[in-house]
Nucleic acid binder design. Structure first.
Length: 453
RNA sequence: GUGGAUGUAGCUCAGCUGGUUAGAGCACUGGAUUGUGGUUCCAGGGGUCGUGGGUUCAAGUCCCAUCUUCCACCCCA
């Protein structure tokens, strides 16, 4: 072979088996979304760079894929700028489009742009790929799918309850045991206030979020490096060490941060959500986790994260409440709450637990063997009858050796093979072979349809 | 972006301190079996050893660069 073809770093091909499994995941998710009244939208793969830049922080800007302008894009650039060799300055001159980085910013843009056509509360879902110029790693790709569900335009905590219920149902349909972890940004802010470092909330929460991963002592080390005073760290200790069931955690948190404005608000929100969740009889346990932060700094209220119980793979779904989502596009005062399902990680969980259903594989039920020109019209007639009966069937497209045709059926895991030769034509029958048992018998078309239906 | 590992047939890998013609299993093709797959047996095709440079009488093997993939960190889904 001259040159092996390849695909860009961090991207993947999906073969037929993977596709049927991925579709199983997407279809399950989609069905639940629609059952709860969420409507689909799609947005373009590329957005104007101006819509994307500055929305994900400095790091995020670096991870954006930028698209070169069409035509002779260097012609209009003046030589001074080229000489400077400053990629960042230059990039805005030669590129005005970029691939979307997530589905939330496009949603905000969509809501602002179509505000007069949208019915609020806007319950929408969106399942599309996003792109990040990150360095690929285990379970991290440069192109991956997000499955987002959001409610826009209503502050009620019933939306949080609705989404948690969606999460519960999706994973119960997929047979994955999960824990739904819950926190609130206002509680985090209350913690920062209570320990006397309200301005360092980001640093504190980012360090706290790593508790599971690096342990208590390392968290303190990191806090120290981030210039949090020893006195504050001392005050933080009882918060970090909180354990026990939700009620006792909430009680303790009440004592520790209940006196702060934000803390009190956050605790009240969590109480309300828990109260509403009670009558819903969810299958999955809800766990209050005061150290849960999640990266995105635009969350303002509830923070939700889902972990698989039987696999250690990190979070497979997460989200939260963000006030003023559309403010960045000049439409203030619209809040939203949403969660995103990580399809790729869910795929890995289902693979590891061997939970993909059997059908996710074979599509064709019956293969008609091609014996040659004389038999083809007869076979086509049977094929047509099978299709009319709604049965997935195919005729092998050339009169190849039987061995080859049988092997084809075997490899595609087609359960039934129909042979029609001279003899079957004469007697108006066909020979049906069950590929699993190896049994075969002469039957009529009607009997065939009844059998495989 | 930082650090570490990796790359040999379509796939998974072996190949000694450099030494003749680079191997295995699986997959593929043909035959045993011209109307029967999944098992078995036999035969066959397929490799510029990631790419480019260097050291050497001699490089898959040693050195440098570069790319890929993987792992950890940063960050994130």
């Amino acid at each position: 072979m001259e040159q092996k073809p390849s695909i860009p770093k961090g991207t993947r091909d999906f073969g037929p088996l993977e596709m049927s499994r991925r579709n199983y995941i997407f279809n399950t998710i989609r069905k639940v979304f629609e059952k709860y009244g969420y409507q689909p939208i799609e947005t373009p793969a590329m957005e104007n760079l101006s819509s994307l830049l500055g929305k994900y922080g400095e790091e995020g800007d670096k991870l954006l894929f930028k698209i070169l302008n069409s035509g002779d894009y260097l012609a209009k650039i003046d030589d001074e700028l080229l000489k400077e060799k400053e990629s960042l300055k230059l990039s805005t001159q030669i590129s005005e489009k970029g691939l979307r980085y997530d589905l939330t910013v496009p949603l905000a843009r969509f809501v602002v742009q179509h505000r007069n056509e949208i019915v609020f509360p806007f319950k929408r879902y969106q399942i599309q790929p996003v792109w990040r110029a990150d360095r690929p790693q285990k379970g991290r790709y440069r192109e991956f799918f997000q499955c987002d569900v959001d409610v826009i335009g209503v502050d009620s905590l019933l939306n949080e309850v609705d989404l948690i219920s969606v999460i519960d149902e999706v994973f119960s349909k997929l047979n994955i045991n999960i824990v739904i972890k819950l926190n609130n940004r206002k509680i985090l802010s209350g913690i920062a206030q209570a320990i006397g470092q309200p301005e360092s909330m980001m640093d504190i929460t980012m360090a706290m979020d790593k508790l599971d991963k690096i342990g208590e002592d390392k968290v303190y080390e990191e806090l120290h490096e981030r210039n949090i005073s020893d006195e504050s760290i001392e005050k933080l200790k009882p918060v970090l060490r909180l354990t026990g069931d939700n009620q006792s955690r909430l009680n303790s948190l009440g004592e520790l941060i209940g006196s702060t404005d934000d803390g009190a608000l956050g605790l009240e929100e969590i109480h309300t959500i828990l109260k509403y969740l009670k009558p819903m009889n969810l299958k999955s346990p809800i766990e209050i986790d005061q150290s849960l932060a999640r990266g995105l700094n635009y969350y303002t209220g509830a923070i939700i994260e889902v972990k698989a119980q039987d696999v250690s793979i990190g979070s497979i779904c997460g989200g939260g409440r963000y006030d003023n989502l559309t403010g960045i596009f000049g439409m203030p005062g619209v809040s939203g709450v949403g969660v995103s399902f990580g399809a790729d990680r869910i795929y890995d969980v289902l693979t590891e637990l061997k939970l993909f259903p059997q059908e996710a594989g074979a599509l064709t039920k019956v293969l008609l063997i091609n014996f040659g020109e004389n038999e083809t019209p007869y076979a086509l007639n049977i094929l047509n009858k099978l299709h009319s009966a709604g049965i997935s069937a195919e005729l092998f497209p050339e009169p190849a050796k039987l061995k080859k045709q049988m092997k084809y059926a075997d490899q595609k895991q087609i359960p039934y093979v129909v042979l029609i030769g001279e003899e079957e034509m004469k007697t108006e029958t066909l020979t049906l072979k069950n590929m699993q048992s190896g049994d075969q018998a002469k039957i009529t078309v009607d009997e065939l349809i009844k059998k495989v239906e």
